[in-house]
């Protein structure tokens, strides 16, 4: 039990995060105070939510590069809606964000499912199309804090038991994904489709339909994040979350989701996102220029994926040796 636990990728990642926190704490104890850790988690919440959706897509051997553009588009739509109808309750805004995001994800999914266009091509295309539509809707203008209603802006900041609503939503999303991935036929079919699409067909799983659902879920999470992002920063413009899709993919890869599909876990994805979040928030504290962040997350991706491949390779060798012995 214990050696197995030590070998698991989640345990190693958790140890890495704790070690990172310990190193930072040795110089800057204020960083690990509960209040600040809550801030770090809150700041990472959007990444966690998006990474959960992306995880489903990558599990089915696809990739969704349009999530950040989806965030910008949904964010702009709900912000515009808010300026036109300031009285609209937050619940209605949330429903609009979730539905619109899911529809945008479904567009990706339909193109992958019905026309069998590779996911990377589809989402490269929709990524630029979605961003372009944001420009068409907004005419390139910003929607600023004073144009948004108080209820719209206050929702993600609302504190319940010391934790802001944004963090609670991330927690809720993670719980939903734990149940969905581990306890529902849909969740298991993601693994089946990614692990071996041919075998999945013979077990009665529609591969294309499963990929379609993964894209819809990813889009839905992007839509949710769209509202949260815009209300949290109290500004909506064309370029929000620019390039964030790569950080989302990075969180998944660091969390041990195999880009070849079929391998990964919710816990790993959560830890992958937290790992990036801890680093991102630590840089200003340890007085490293924020310009270092890009290079550091790039190195983290490369090291994570190299480490991943190395551990799976040694496993392969051991099996081969034992097979030779028995023969």
């Amino acid at each position: 039990m214990m050696p197995q636990l030590l070998k698991s990728r989640e345990a190693i990642l958790l140890a890495a995060i704790l070690a990172l926190l310990a190193i930072i704490a040795s110089r800057f104890p204020a960083y690990v105070e509960p209040g600040n850790l809550i801030n770090v988690f809150n700041d990472t919440s959007t990444l966690i939510i998006l990474a959960m959706g992306q995880m489903c897509v990558i599990l089915t051997r696809c990739i969704d590069l349009s999530v950040a553009a989806n965030v910008a588009l949904t964010g702009m739509v709900v912000a515009t809606l808010n300026t036109l109808m300031p009285g609209l309750p937050v619940v209605a805004i949330l429903v609009v964000a979730l539905v619109l995001g899911a529809c945008l994800g479904a567009v990706n999914g339909l193109l992958v499912w019905k026309l069998q266009i590779p996911a990377i091509v589809v989402t490269l295309g929709t990524m630029t199309i979605f961003r372009g539509i944001v420009f068409l809707i907004s005419d390139g203008k910003w929607i600023n804090a004073h144009e948004m209603s108080a209820g719209f802006k206050d929702f993600p900041r609302m504190e319940i038991a010391g934790l802001p609503m944004l963090s609670w939503i991330a927690v809720l999303v993670v719980i939903c994904f734990v149940v969905m991935i581990n306890r529902t036929p849909l969740g298991r079919s993601f693994f089946a489709v990614g692990g071996n699409p041919n075998a999945a067909v013979y077990t009665g799983i529609d591969v294309g339909r499963t990929q379609f659902l993964a894209f819809t879920i990813s889009g839905m999470m992007a839509g949710l994040t769209g509202y949260l992002w815009v209300s949290r920063f109290a500004v909506a413009y064309v370029d929000i979350a620019g390039g964030f899709e790569l950080e989302v993919v990075a969180a998944c890869v660091i969390g041990g989701i195999s880009i070849a599909g079929g391998v990964g876990s919710v816990a790993g994805t959560l830890l992958g996102a937290l790992f990036l979040g801890v680093i991102k928030n630590a840089l200003p504290v340890v007085n490293i220029s924020p310009f270092w962040q890009l290079a550091i997350s790039g190195s983290a991706i490369i090291i994570a994926v190299a480490f991943n491949a190395q551990s799976s390779r040694t496993k392969g060798r051991v099996i081969l040796k034992s097979a030779e012995h028995t023969a």
Binding site: L246, V249, A250, V253, L294, A295, G298, S299, I301, I302
Partner: peptide
């Protein structure tokens, strides 16, 4: 695809 997403950030 993963390597070059990483080096994309790194470079």
């Amino acid at each position: 695809i993963v390597v070059t997403i990483g080096t994309m950030s790194l470079f």
